[in-house]
Amino acid sequence: MRWIGNNTDLILGYLASHVWLSIVPTVLGFLLALPIGWWANRVPAVRGVVLSVGNVLYTIPSLAFILILPGVIGTGFLDPLNIVIALTVYAVAVMARFASDGFASVSPAVLDSARASGFGAAGLALRVELPLAGPVLLAGLRVVSVSTVSLVSVGALAGVDNLGRLFTEGVFTGNTAEILTGIVLVVALALVLDLLLVIAGRALLPWSAGARRVRGGVA
């Protein structure tokens, strides 16, 4: 406990950096995956390619990926951008599959009826398909958010400041308090982000929460 008290500035600095290193790739990955998933749902051939490429990307070991990136895109070896780009790639790889499944989950009858009512192509995609894919998109976003928070720690091995540094330094100096602090904060951050997503889902998809309650009530 004394160690924590003496190092609050350090810990808060790592925490802040961990937060934005987690949020930026999650948001970017989500936004990039939406059009990819929508397209994949339209064209079966695209879906096949997206799913295989996603699987292959996800098998690249994260540490190797982060270390190779500077050589590929010409960033500095210790640049946080390496982590942001690597984690965005992982986020897209996972999220595109969820997005494709989400758009596939929209009832064809509802789409047909919306088209017959006079929705144009853009209105159909943004005001019918996107919100109705919402529950599956949210499920995917929760997976991506938690896995990104945990993957950021790996960046510590590539010299980027974040909560992962508490593990590496703690192991190096044999400081158990430091290691435990790192673990607790990473888990807490993952839980808080997940909770925020659930709350956002309740607010943005009230019809879906209602559907769950009613189904539960009837059963």
């Binding site: 009832s107 009858a109 509802v110 047909d112 009826s113 919306a114 017959a116 009512s117 019918v128 919100p131 109705l132 919402g134 998809l205 019809w207 879906s208 559907a211």
Partner: peptide, 12 residues
């Protein structure tokens, strides 16, 4: 246009 099973938008 009215269709079978109403085709209403479930999210509205």
């Amino acid at each position: 246009y009215v269709m079978q099973a109403s085709g209403l938008l479930p999210h509205r």
